[in-house]
Nucleic acid binder design. Structure first.
Lengths: 215, 215
DNA sequence: TAAATAAAATGAACGCTGTTCATTTTAATG
DNA sequence: CATTAAAATGAACAGCGTTCATTTTATTTA
C-alpha cells in the first residue's frame, strides 16, 4: 500500500527539482529572461507539466523566492563569535550587502520585484525572510542593551538599518551607482570600486552610530 | 522656406506628446502593463509611428525616465527657507520619500528598474538626477560646515543618506514593508501606517545624526 | 491646377511570451 | 491481459515588442 506514498514523494521531488532548476537559472538571468520553456527544458519535462505543479509563473517564483530566502539566511547568519554586539551588527550588515551584490538576480526577486509579493500577503512563505529580520532586531537589541548603539528604539533602528543596507545594495544592483563612475559627478568617491564603496559606507555608518566603549 | 522648420517643430512636438502620454500612463501602471499599443492609442497614432520617433521601448522609456527626473527634481528641490541647514536636509529627505511613495511607478523607473539603465551609460540623460544628487551633497556640505552633522565626509554621507531614504521608499514600493502589517512580526511598529513609518524613521535618523546646536 | 515626388503614417504579420487543454503516454488495478 | 486512472505532452491562443510593404498625406515641379 506504499504506492500512494511513493507517488507523493515523487511529486514532491519534482516540485523540488523544478524550484532548484528555476533558482539556478535565476541566479544568473533576470526574471523576464527566464521563461517557463527554459525551466521546463532544464528539468527535462514539457512546459505543460510545470503547470501541474505550479498554478502560474508567479506561484513558481514565489517558491523560488522562499528558496532564495533560505539560502540568503543560511549565508548571512554565519557570524563570528564576539563579545561586542556592535561588531556582530557590523558583520551582519556586511554579509547582507555582500550576499546581495554577489547574487543580484536572487536579491531582486527577494526584495525588489513587485510580482511575487501580491500573491503572498498572509501566506507563510517569507519565513526565512522574517527570521532574518528577527536576527537583525535581536542584535540591535543587544547593542542597545550593551550601550553600544545610539538608539533607544530597537525596532525602528532595525528598520532604518535594513533600509540603509538595502538601499545601497539595490542601487548597486540597478546600476544606479554607475553615476560614480563616469564624469557626471566629480567627487572623491568616483575612484573607488562601487562594491567596496558600499562595504566602506556600511562601516562608516556603524562608526557614526557607535557609542564608544566605556573605559 | 519655413516649412522645414515647422516640420521639425511638429516632429519635436509629437515626441513631446508621446513622452507626456507615456509618463501619464506610467504614473499609474507598471512597466509591463504599459504596452506600445496603449501609448499609441493615447496619442492617437498607430503603433508603427512610435517607432519613427523612438528606436524601441527602452529608448522611449529612457525619455520618460528623464521626464520623471525633471518632475521629481522640481518637486523635491522646493525647500522652505531656513537658517539651519540640517532642517533643509531633513526637508529634502522628507520630500524625497513623499515623492517616491506618491509616484511609485515613476520612482521604479527612475531608481529601481534595470531596463533603461544599460542604454544610458554615458549619455547625458540623468541630468536632473545628477542635479538632485548635487543638491543633496551641497546641503550635507553646509550641515558639516555649520557643525550640525556627525560626519567629516560629505560625499560618503550623501551616498549613505541617499541609500537610506531610497531603501525605505523602495521597500515600501515593493510592498516589503507589508511584513509590518500582518502578524508575521509582532513589534511596536506594526500598528503604524507604513508611509508614516518611513517619514518618522527619516526624522529619527536625522535626530541621531544631528550635532546639537551650540548655546 | 494637375502631375510627380517626397515624407509620414499605417496595421497586418512575425517571433516571442505565459497559459490552456484535447490528446497521448505511462502506471496501477481488476 | 484488459481496464481504468494518472501523468505528461505540445500544438494552439492571446498578448507582447517590433518590422516593413503599403497607403495616405504633404510638398514640389510642370
Amino acid at each position: 500500500m506504499g504506492i500512494q506514498e511513493r507517488k507523493e514523494r515523487d511529486k514532491e521531488e519534482l516540485r523540488r527539482k523544478i524550484i532548484a532548476a528555476a533558482t539556478e537559472l535565476f541566479r544568473e538571468e533576470a526574471y523576464d529572461a527566464v521563461g517557463m520553456r527554459k525551466i521546463a527544458d532544464k528539468v527535462e519535462y514539457s512546459v505543460g507539466t510545470l503547470y501541474l505543479y505550479y498554478k502560474d509563473k508567479d506561484e513558481l517564483f514565489l517558491a523560488v523566492q522562499e528558496e532564495a530566502f533560505r539560502q540568503a539566511f543560511a549565508y548571512i547568519q554565519q557570524l563570528p563569535e564576539t563579545d561586542d554586539p556592535l561588531e556582530r551588527l557590523h558583520g551582519l550588515g556586511e554579509r547582507y550587502v555582500r550576499y546581495g551584490m554577489e547574487n543580484p538576480e536572487l536579491y531582486r526577486l527577494m526584495f525588489m520585484m513587485e510580482h511575487p509579493m501580491q500573491a503572498l500577503s498572509q501566506s507563510d512563505d517569507w519565513r526565512s525572510g522574517i527570521l532574518l529580520h528577527q536576527l537583525l532586531t535581536e542584535i540591535v537589541q543587544d547593542c542597545i542593551s550593551a550601550g553600544r548603539l545610539k538608539s533607544d528604539d530597537p525596532h525602528r533602528m532595525s528598520f532604518a538599518l535594513w533600509s540603509f543596507v538595502h538601499g545601497m545594495v539595490s542601487l548597486r544592483i540597478s546600476h544606479r551607482l554607475d553615476i560614480y563612475n563616469g564624469e557626471h559627478l566629480n567627487c572623491p568617491l568616483c575612484g573607488e570600486d562601487v562594491e567596496q564603496l558600499v562595504i566602506d559606507t556600511n562601516k562608516m555608518m556603524m562608526k557614526i552610530l557607535e557609542v564608544p566603549k566605556q573605559l
